[in-house]
Design a protein around this nucleic acid. Structure first.
Length: 411
RNA sequence: GUGAGUAUAGCUCAGUUGGCAGAGCACCAGGUUGUGGCCCUGGGGGUCGUGGGUUCAAGUCCCACUACUCACCCCA
């Protein structure tokens, strides 16, 4: 029986990275006042088609959409923002003191799998509602960056751009279209298509010729309205003030329609073609478009699988006590229970019927600090042998005195 | 959706002009009759991705299919 294409088991060997990732993410985000929210993995299809945008690739060809038993069209969430916004509206979270949220969970997109790209993948993301002030844009970038720093990631680059709003972007799109129309014949096939559907995307094309043409294309900064312009400039100023280094990339484009004004990406060179580790921006019209009161918003999403690839666990996995049990397991279980209860130590009781030698080997492989040996001899004498694996010393301890002895050791 | 590459032990991979299925690591056991790491010896594990074809003979050559990987695309 094979696993589904683009889906992956996360095995215990890898789990420690996930636990570290989630722990650090939670700690960092909570530190800045963000509260966790968990929204359903399934939502009505219209939430995403309206939220993410009818003509986006995600909606057009990547969603897991099907009919439930009542005939309603439902979709496995392809991203987290739409669901968070829906939850914000339907739970009236505008009346809740905290307007900063974070989520961690699986997302689904029917894409061709590749390095850093799966059909079920996980994202950590944040959303802030109702704050217009450009300093919050800077906060969001900063929080993202600091989270990645704490995960020990290096060589990351932050790119930012202004993509305008529904007032000014159409003008820019029109100008872009006119410009590229002149070079229609030279553009790659994909870009010929983009010309009609979304000329913005041509800016992002990797084809050399298209790139050359795009380098002289009109710049959005010449078209954005005063509101967008002053906002964007203020965000950059704020970022500089809090010492967040960034580069402006006028060709930075988002594939989801809800973004407005300020957008950013955090990129690594270590993951090949899928180097964007984190990305986000403003979505000032999304809440209203999904039926809520006009409320602005901003957030980011990070790709967990991509982060996991970059996380390096320095130390090895270890365990405090390995119980090499040759006689009765119950006695060992009692001792292990005491260690867990009173000393908060990790234990592993060996239930496999192995030779002592093979158990010692196994303890060594598990990187055990101590081995408790309990066999026939020990049982007769009412003791256990506690061996210090690092020092290679051991001593006999009366079973009644075991806990006392260990408490002393860890003080 | 498009293109290229790959598919042999749990993992990483050798396998010559077609001629008995291999190594390293991991796992298990023994050397040490109850004590880890180093070392030595032995062992278990394979429908060579699947299905056809050519041939006395196919892991090897041919065809088809499937999966995986990378890139395009898209995005986190």
């Amino acid at each position: 029986m094979d696993i589904l294409r683009g889906f992956k088991d996360i095995l215990p060997q890898e789990m420690r990275k996930w636990q570290k990732l989630e722990k650090i993410a939670r700690e960092t985000l909570e530190l800045f006042g963000y509260k966790e929210i968990r929204t359903p993995i399934l939502e009505k299809t219209t939430l995403f088609s309206r939220g993410v945008g009818e003509t986006t690739d995600i909606v057009e060809k990547e969603m897991y959409t099907f009919l439930d038993k009542s005939g309603e069209s439902i979709t496995l969430r392809p991203e987290g923002t739409a669901g968070a916004v829906r939850a914000y509206i339907s739970n009236h979270l505008e009346n809740y003191p905290f307007k900063k949220f974070y989520y961690i969970g699986p997302m689904f997109r029917y894409e061709k799998p590749q390095k850093g790209r799966l059909r079920q993948f996980h994202q950590i993301g944040i959303e802030v509602f109702g704050v217009q002030d450009p300093s919050v844009d800077a906060e969001v970038v900063y929080v993202d960056k600091i989270m990645l720093d704490k995960l020990g990631l290096t060589d990351l680059r932050i790119e930012v751009n202004n993509i305008g709003c529904p007032n000014c972007r159409p003008k820019y799109m029109k100008s872009l279209k006119n410009y590229f129309e002149k070079y229609r014949e030279e553009l790659c096939d994909d870009c010929k298509n983009r010309l009609n559907r979304n000329p913005l995307r041509i800016l992002d094309c990797k084809n050399k010729t298209c790139r050359n043409i795009a380098s002289n294309a009109p710049k959005i900064h010449e078209f954005v309205c005063d509101n967008c312009k002053t906002h964007y400039e203020a965000v950059k100023e704020n970022l500089s003030k809090i010492n967040v280094e960034f580069e402006e990339n006028p060709h930075l484009v988002r594939g989801l329609d809800y973004y407005t004004k300020f957008v950013f990406e955090i990129i690594t060179d270590k993951l090949g073609a899928q180097g964007t580790v984190s990305a986000g921006g403003r979505y000032d019209n999304l809440v209203e478009e999904l039926g809520g009161k006009p409320t602005c918003g901003i957030g980011f999403a990070s790709g967990c699988e991509r982060l996991i690839e970059l996380i390096d666990l320095g130390d090895n996995q270890s365990i405090d006590y390995y119980f090499a049990c040759l006689e009765d397991y119950t006695t060992c279980l009692k001792l292990a229970k005491e260690l867990a209860d009173k000393l908060n130590k990790t234990t592993y009781i060996e239930y496999e019927n192995r030779s002592l030698k093979s158990m010692m080997k196994k303890a060594d492989k598990m990187n055990a600090n101590f081995v408790v040996i309990y066999g026939k001899n020990e049982k007769e004498k009412g003791i256990v042998i506690v061996k210090d694996m690092k020092k290679s010393t051991q001593k006999e301890v009366k079973i009644e005195k075991f806990l006392e002895n260990e408490v002393e050791k860890w003080q």
